[in-house]
Amino acid sequence: MSTTVSPSQSVPAQTAAAPLSGVRVSRALIYAALVIFAALFLIPVYMVLVTSFKSIDQVSISTMWNLPTSFTLESFQRALEKLLPNLINSLLLVVPATVLSAALGSMNGYVLSKWRFRGANIIFPLMLFGMFIPYQAILIPLVQFLQTIGLYGSIGGLILVHVVYGLPITTLIFRNYYAEVPDEMIEAGAIDGAGFFGLYWWVVLPISLPGFVVVIIWQFTQIWNEFLFGVTITNTASQPITVALQNLSGSQIVEWNVQMAGAFLTALPTLLVYILLGRYFIRGLLAGSVKG
């Protein structure tokens, strides 16, 4: 982590000729640009919120950008009616899938960073490739495979799929994380007589919390937001919330205020995680570009 320079130290060595007012103007321009961009980025949020707090007779073209004249939770109620079963499906899916893929990723990362073996630098890239493939390329066999083992259309099948295709990224993040742990710590533990599992339990696991936080946040967000598997290997009873939202917006009869309320409900869990634990989210994000 780089140390941040405190704001009071700013404008350290402007070329001597630059008059102070010029610096002020350019600072103002920078802030103005940032504020404009921030406003542009927030337009969809404004629109979603404004629309979802309106009742249907208030949703008209001429007043689309206006604030609601009277706040109502009616659209949230109606969206929740339609989405609640799928919201529960998503929760039932995302918790076990996240925990399992994090646990496996931690073990894999430990092996790949501290127990290097011949062939590891061939196996690891081959594992990693799995996170970049377009899942369309495995979808047809996947459906047939899940049908054969009786997991097609069930949340269990969806969990299995997310755990397997989550392995590359969780392994990668933990491998890079454990690579920072000095080998001497492992060696010291080994001298004290600890074996493979002892070293993991007593040395590695106690310092793994930040790694787990990054991986759990990342997997939670990815699995919650996923759509392709959700729409292909489920049936109506086991669809996750993203699929239900798409169905909601795809049907022409559902009013816009309900659609926006649905979008807000779908976004809420990952948004909360991001706002509360954003620092770790960004770490996961940057780890996705392999080197971390």
Binding site: A38, G262, G278
Partner: peptide
Amino acid sequence: IFLFPMALSFVVTGVAWKWL
């Protein structure tokens, strides 16, 4: 503000922007 859309599902983005 600049990074929060990354936390959303493409489905949410699609629904919101379809309206916009």
